Amino acid sequence: MGTSHSVMLVEDEFPNKYSKRKLYSCGFWQYNGLGDTKNTKEFTEIPFFFEHDDILEISVGYEHNLILTSNGKLFGFGNTQFGRLADTSTSNHLIPFQIEIPGFSIYDEDVFKCHIHCGASNSFLFLVYFNNFEKDLIHLFRRKEFCDISFKTKNGEVIEAHQLILQNRLNQNQIEKLRKIISNKSIKESNQIFEMIYSNRIINTKLYSEIKEIIKEEKLSESMRRLFEDETTKDFIIERNGKSIKFHKLILIMRSELYRGMFLLVTDDKSNKVTDYSEISDEAFQIFEYWIYSNQIKKEIQLTKEIIYEIEKSVDYFQLNPIKPNLLDFALQEFKKQTKNQN
C-alpha cells in the first residue's frame, strides 16, 4: 500500500497449468500509475504488455511502484518526481515502463537473488551474489558437456546433471525421490531445483519446501571437503616429480580453466592421467590441491614470500576462476595474519 493507492499481485491458474501473475490496483490515479485517468474504487488490472516477462516481485512506495520480472528486467510506474523511478521525464507514468540501468544487468549469471524496495521518494535494488563454490557449481550445472545422469520433467524434457555432485549431496533413495519430484515439474522449475541442490541456496522458496527433506543440512564447504577426503571416487591422476596425486576430474573441470579447456579439446582421449609441467614446489601444489576442494589453506602450512610467489604462478598456470576471494588474495591475507602473530 502507498499513501493513496493499493496494489495486489495475483497468480491466475489456467487449464494447461501455465500460471501468469497479474497486477491490480485501486485508489488515486494521478501519481500512482493505475493505468487509468480517474480514481478507481475497485481493484482494476494494470496493463502489462510484456507477455514473456512474468512478475517475480512488486514493491509499492508512497506514489510510485517497481516490478521485477522473471528474466531480470525492472519496470516502474507512478510519480517520477525526485528521480524515484530513475527517469528524467517530468510526466507520471500511467503504465509500467522498463527502467534501464546503464552498465549493469540484474540477470547477470553471478547474481543469486535480487530484491526491490520502494521508499517514500526513493527506490532500492538489492543483489546477492554467488560465492566461489556456488558460482562454480552453478556454472558446472549449466554446462552440459560433462553430465552423466538425466531426469525427465512432466512434459518429457530431459534435464541433465552430474552424478558425482548429486551423490555427494544426496543418497540413492534421495536421488530417486528427486527423480519423482522432477517428473512433476516444468523444465524451469527443474532447473531451479538442481541449482538449489548444487549451490545450497534457496533460489525458490516454494520449490525448496518440496526438496528440503532430501538435502543434507550442511555447508557447501563441508560437502566439498568430504569429496576431497574420498579417495574411492577420485578418477583422475596428476603426475608430478615421480608422484601420482588423485583428483576428481569433475572438480578439476569445475575449478580450473586449464583442465576444462584440456578436457573439452581432447574429447576422444580416455586417459585418466596427465603430467603437471608447472614449476611450483610440492608445498605450493598441495595448497592448490586443497584449495580447489575447500577454498581454504591448511592451517599447518607456514606461508612464506617464496610460497606466495609460487601461488601466484599456480593461479596463472592452472587458470583458477578469477572470482574473489581467489587463492592469491586468500594466501596474502593468511600470510599477513601469520606474520602479525609471529611479531
Rank of each mutant, 00 (worst) to 15 (best):
I203T: 03
F236K: 00
K185G: 04
R240W: 03
E213S: 15
N200I: 05
E195P: 01
K212F: 08
G242C: 11
K180V: 09
L207P: 01
M224W: 01
S183V: 06
H248F: 12
E218Y: 00
E189G: 01
Y208V: 10
V266P: 12
I197G: 00
L252H: 05
I237R: 00
L250I: 14
K177P: 10
G261Y: 00
E195Y: 06
V274N: 08
M196N: 13
K270M: 15
E176A: 13
K234G: 07
M224C: 09
I251G: 01
T232D: 10
Y198Q: 06
D235I: 02
I203S: 02
K270T: 14
S244I: 00
L220A: 03
S183C: 08
S221I: 04
S190L: 05
R260L: 08
V266F: 07
L258G: 07
S199H: 05
K234L: 04
K273D: 13
S209M: 10
R225D: 14
E222F: 06
I215C: 10
R255D: 01
G242V: 13
R260K: 10
S256F: 00
N184E: 10
I280Q: 03
K249D: 13
D235L: 05
K270H: 04
R179C: 01
L258Y: 09
S256M: 06
K188Y: 15
E222W: 02
E176S: 15
K243G: 03
I203R: 03
K180E: 04
T205Q: 11
E218N: 01
K273H: 14
I251K: 05
K249N: 14
E189C: 02
E218D: 01
K246P: 06
I253C: 09
F228S: 12
E210A: 00
M224N: 11
M196C: 14
E189V: 06
L227M: 15
N184I: 04
R179I: 01
N272T: 13
I253G: 13
S199F: 06
M262R: 03
I181R: 13
T205W: 15
E189Y: 08
L265R: 12
N241Y: 14
K185A: 06
S183H: 09
T232V: 13
T275G: 13
T233Q: 12
S221Q: 00
L207S: 02
